[in-house]
Design a protein around this nucleic acid. Structure first.
Length: 416
RNA sequence: GUGGGUGUAGCUCAGCAGGUUAGAGCGCCAGGUUGUGGCCCUGGAGGUCGUGGGUUCGAGUCCCAUCACUCACCCCA
């Protein structure tokens, strides 16, 4: 026992939790406006689901999953991302047989065993949306536009939308091959990581951070020259629609994503000021995902945003509103013999829906006043011997510093 | 998994080159003010100096290990 939250996890204390509520509310409101319906899937799934969808060779599966065997011998894994579980649920409940597209949103914790750093934890929260059942570029745009609107609605003005197409299963292999060939010629000059990438995951060669590698890869083959006709057309239409909708974007031919299921459109919303892990959210199209989970060939497109990263970035950019105004009533009961009568008042205030609180430690009036002030109550009702004799209470406005004497009933009427 | 930085009170940090009872500010509690918050003053509570070894007459201070935090790589939200 160390009395510490496990590595890579942390507590969201009340002050921060209220910020999370704000984000959740905005997200859910937008989902309602865009007609996405909520789905809640389990926090763990069969390990195999993630292996098949996210990809056997991906880092997420190879080294970041929390896997375990339950008492029945089932191989399970805490979900490292949200899409796979939603796709599984889509299949399991035959949602491919209802009118398409099916638009779902989710919200909750994800788990990846990775070394924590700024904006990266082992348990982190994502809010995401998915559109199943259409290949149309307008669906990609729906998801991107939603994300752009979401970030705008919470105050971001400087996020960059990076956009790319990673092609499909037909055209991507040609590109990957040529990229490999290109890299092979310079293998000895590349950094050790890139030497591995050249063999295993050539697309990753494109976004190496080493300056020397960037220089070497400068003249590498470009994905856009390899996109097949349909991928090319798809991508261009996405771009046209974004233009028409005034969503600014930046075509980043080096943008690749780590989850194997992506096809065609890939995008990320990037913040400049929260350190190395600057992606606040991202997503793309996954036309082979449902099929590779053993279902029919249902196309899809979706995205997820990281709550911790958004909170971080909003702090950096000072997007959080100032402390809220004092509100509610604190009932200062001065004298233990008045407690019973006071509590009746307290609960009657709460019945009326007022934020009402009292002291539970038999503290002095002074201490109670201090507490009311610190805890941002707008009013204090003082109920002591003096008031009891006159059958009155004092109602103090903590903001104005004024107070008046009146009956409790009148005070209550004033407050509600 | 790899590398750098950091771990002293609830929080932010001092602690000089190893030397008696470990400090400050903020916060908390109480009093100054016989019932009234904010400002001011006084007092009080609160510390296994991350943990475990080692060096030394003596370790918060030096060494090693370990854990955690942090930043970066890898990768991603």
């Amino acid at each position: 026992m160390s009395n510490k939250a496990p590595r890579g996890t942390r507590d969201i204390l009340p002050q921060e939790a209220s910020r999370w509520h704000f984000l959740e509310e905005r997200f859910k409101k937008l989902c309602y406006i865009y007609d996405f319906a909520e789905i809640r899937t389990p926090l763990f799934e069969e390990t195999e689901l993630f292996v098949r969808s996210v990809g056997e060779e991906s880092d997420v599966v190879k080294k970041e999953m929390y896997t375990f065997k339950d008492r029945g011998g089932r191989e399970l894994a805490l979900r490292p991302e949200g899409t796979a579980g939603v796709a599984r649920a889509y299949l399991e409940h035959g949602m491919h047989n209802i009118p398409q597209p099916v638009k779902l949103f989710y919200y909750g914790p994800m788990f990846r065993y990775d070394r924590p750093q700024a904006g990266r934890q082992r348990q982190f929260y994502q809010m995401g949306i998915e559109v199943f059942g259409t290949k149309e570029p307008s669906a990609d745009v729906e998801v991107i536009k939603f994300t752009a609107e979401f970030f705008l609605s919470i105050g971001f003005k400087n996020l960059k939308l990076h956009l790319n197409s990673v092609g499909c299963l037909q055209c991507r292999p040609f590109y990957q091959d040529d990229l490999k060939k290109f890299a092979r010629g310079k293998l000895s000059l590349l950094c050790p990581d890139c030497q591995k990438r050249a063999l295993l995951n050539p697309l990753r060669l494109l976004d190496c951070k080493a300056e020397s590698c960037r220089e070497l890869m400068k003249d590498s083959p470009q994905i856009e020259d390899y996109l097949c006709k349909s991928c090319h057309g798809h991508f261009n239409e996405v771009l046209d629609l974004l233009k028409a909708l005034n969503v600014p974007y930046y075509v980043d031919s080096r943008l690749v994503r780590g989850l194997d299921y992506y096809t065609n459109t890939a995008f990320e919303f990037i913040s400049e000021d929260i350190g190395a892990q600057g992606s606040l959210g991202g997503g793309g199209r996954y036309d082979n995902l449902v099929e590779s989970c053993g279902g029919p060939a249902v196309p899809g497109v979706g995205m997820a945003v990281g709550v911790e990263r958004i909170v971080l970035a909003m702090e950096k950019e000072k997007l959080w509103p100032e402390k809220n105004e004092p509100e509610g009533v604190f009932l200062a009961i001065d004298g233990p013999e008045l407690r019973e009568e006071g509590l009746v008042m307290l609960y009657s205030m709460r019945e009326k829906g007022l934020r009402a609180e009292t002291d539970y430690l038999n503290r002095s009036l002074k201490a109670q006043m201090k507490f009311a002030h610190r805890n941002r109550f707008r009013y204090v009702i003082i109920f002591g011997k003096e008031e009891k004799l006159k059958n009155e209470v004092k109602l103090r406005d903590m903001l104005k510093g004024e107070q008046l004497e009146l009956s409790y009933e009148k005070a209550l009427n004033f407050l509600i």
